[in-house]
């Protein structure tokens, strides 16, 4: 189990780095997919089968397909990548550095949270997640679903507006 954890962690970190470093957007997307799959593997190690599968369905199966779709439609390549000016690079470095600073500041004083039920291996199964979501966190759950619906309606409205203009 420990060996599997280190293997998956190494794959996740390496592929995440490759997402940033690879020049072609298609390769970035593929490495991101590998990263997501290895994170799903971590969930399985924690016996959270439901989370793992939903993670694969939502992130790998839906969101990344849309990413790939857009990249393919726009035919983004290293060859026709717009040249970035010196100013953009400097700005990017400063922004990234600031983000790093914020992250370090936020995690500096973090304490290790003790797991509530460390011996409960069923915590990631469907039943437990359903009970928790629909009993303990019912209101936040429903509100977040309303948020998703409003985002969907907004996207449809934006799409409609464009077609009218044409």
């Amino acid at each position: 189990m420990t060996f599997l954890f280190y293997l998956l962690a190494a794959v996740a970190i390496l592929s995440a780095l490759m997402v940033v470093f690879s020049r072609s957007p298609i390769n970035s997307v593929i490495f991101l997919i590998i990263c997501f799959l290895s994170i799903a593997g971590h969930y399985i190690l924690l016996n959270a089968q439901f989370l793992a599968v939903v993670h694969i369905i939502v992130y790998t199966g839906a969101i990344m397909v849309l990413f790939l779709f857009v990249i393919m439609l726009l035919n983004l390549n290293t060859s026709n990548e717009p040249h970035k000016s010196q100013l953009t690079r400097i700005t990017a470095v400063i922004t990234g550095g600031l983000l790093l600073l914020v992250l370090i500041a936020a995690t500096k004083d973090a304490v290790l949270i003790q797991a509530k039920n460390p011996a409960d291996y069923n915590i990631g199964l469907v039943k437990q997640i359903g009970q928790t979501l629909f009993k303990q966190f019912l209101l936040p759950f429903e509100i977040s679903s309303v948020l998703f619906i409003s985002a969907m309606v907004g996207a449809v409205m934006l799409g409609k507006k464009d077609s009218k203009k044409n």
Partner: peptide, 25 residues
């Protein structure tokens, strides 16, 4: 006998799209 068997099949189907997409591209 996964206790999320249906979802597993669903996940595999959704990964299967990549084969066609990557090949075509």
């Amino acid at each position: 006998d996964l206790n999320i068997g249906i979802l597993y099949i669903f996940a595999m189907v959704s990964i299967g799209v990549y084969g066609i997409m990557l090949g075509g591209w």
